[in-house]
Design a protein around this nucleic acid. Structure first.
Length: 346
RNA sequence: GGACAGGUGGCCGAGUGGCUAAAGGCAGCAGGCUGUAAACCUGCCGCUCCUUGCGAGCUACGGGGGUUCGAAUCCUCCCCUGUCCA
């Protein structure tokens, strides 16, 4: 796999670094936060707003797009970029998180995951190979292999099984990707960006909060060699100090010259803490979900704008913030929008 | 003037003798959201008091009176609202 990540600068006192991630649809400056657009849209945001706030890459979800509208249909449109008319990079998650979040509908076997659709109950079998194929069909810039995300807390045996399974699936994913990626990307009529660059495939480390298993998983995935390295299975309910310590521990075992992606994280503080541990990429539903639910991150901490105490507050959400919302609107108005159920005005 | 139907907690609306301070919804209040089954979910939501308990007392189903051990529920008179007929 080619060099798709350039390190620009390294911090002297921490493991933080800045870099550039090269993708078929353009470069991404790291550290980067990727807004989550599960079904091909970042909820309650327009693409213009995403660009305005500096989103350089967004995340979409294989499971959800496979269910609706279907990866084949997206491919007919020339890929997800063209389908949703998003010219910037897209990372697609594999469905590994849905193994956990849809646990009542997912059955894991050695060969793959049997999903019963959360929409109509129909049966679907996801294998590591098919999941790569789905993502190649979507035209993703960064492809995530199928993994098994495990709930917290989990027993050592469960975590061990999940690490081994995720490792075997990573190997199968890499082989299938190596054999099929170029064929998919050279197909005419599809928006594959700069085909000479090609899509990236990342590896995912599992192991819960068990540092021995984390080390084993990190070394195994690093040994296989991927375009980037993700830490999965965190921010699933473990204490904060474990999130930070496991992240720090795993990052040390991941190749220095590859991008490191901490999946599903996190709060503003999480981002700062984990950048210092050498993480380059993050994604999280928290900013968009919390915003939809009336919870805002400010320089002074979380603020629940729905609260009655802001009903007559003429001040901005965050006096220290210069964003369009803080420049334009009062807390009273924003609270009013929540009271009346308006989501789009601001 | 007559015939029906109906008046329940901020609103809508269940409830026809005790398990009812009264289902459910809305509104209100508080909180939670970390690779999105999430514009979602949870809790509180008559008043007062305390030793905060499946606690005590008070007030409450249009108004008055009555039946009953016990009434939002049954009887009676009155007031009001809606629909229809004159």
């Amino acid at each position: 796999m080619g060099l798709k990540f350039t390190i620009v600068a390294k911090d002297k006192s921490t493991r933080a670094r800045t870099g550039i991630l090269h993708t078929p649809h353009g470069d991404v400056e790291t550290p980067i936060f990727m807004p989550v657009g599960t079904a091909g849209a970042v909820k309650a945001m327009t693409q213009a707003q995403l660009e305005e706030v500096g989103a350089q890459i967004i995340l979409a979800n294989t499971y959800h797009l496979y269910m609706r509208p279907g990866h084949e249909m997206v491919r007919e449109f020339g890929g997800l970029h063209r389908f949703m008319n998003w010219p910037h990079p897209i990372l697609t998650d594999s469905g590994g998180f849905q193994v956990m979040s849809l646990k009542g509908l997912a059955k894991v076997t050695d060969d793959g995951v049997h999903f019963r659709s959360h929409l109509d109950g129909s049966s679907h079998f996801f294998t590591p190979e098919r999941v790569i194929e789905f993502q190649l069909s979507l035209g993703s810039d960064i492809i995530m292999p199928l993994d098994e995300c495990v709930e917290y807390p989990a027993s050592h045996e469960t975590l061990k099984r999940s690490v081994r399974l995720t490792g075997r699936w990573a190997d199968r994913s890499k082989r299938f990707f190596a054999a099929n990626a170029s064929a998919f990307q050279s197909r005419s009529g599809e928006d594959s960006g700069k085909p000479e660059l090609g899509a990236s495939l990342f590896g995912i480390v599992q192991g819960g909060t068990d540092t021995d298993l984390r080390r084993e998983s990190a070394m195994e995935i690093a040994e296989m060699g991927f375009d980037g390295y993700a830490i999965g299975g965190l921010s699933v309910g473990e204490p904060k100090d474990e999130l930070y310590s496991v992240t720090e521990c795993v990052a040390e075992y991941l190749p220095e010259d590859g991008p490191r992606y901490l999946m599903g994280v996190g709060t503003p503080e999480d981002l700062v803490r984990c950048v210092a541990s050498g993480i380059d990429m993050f994604d999280c539903v928290m900013p968009t979900r919390n915003a939809r639910n009336g919870c805002v991150f400010t320089s002074a901490g979380k603020l629940t704008i729905k609260s009655a105490r802001y009903a007559r507050d003429p001040g901005p959400l965050d006096a220290a913030c210069g964003c369009p919302v803080c420049r334009r609107y009062s807390r009273a108005y924003l609270r009013h929008l929540f009271s009346v159920g308006e989501i789009s005005a601001a």
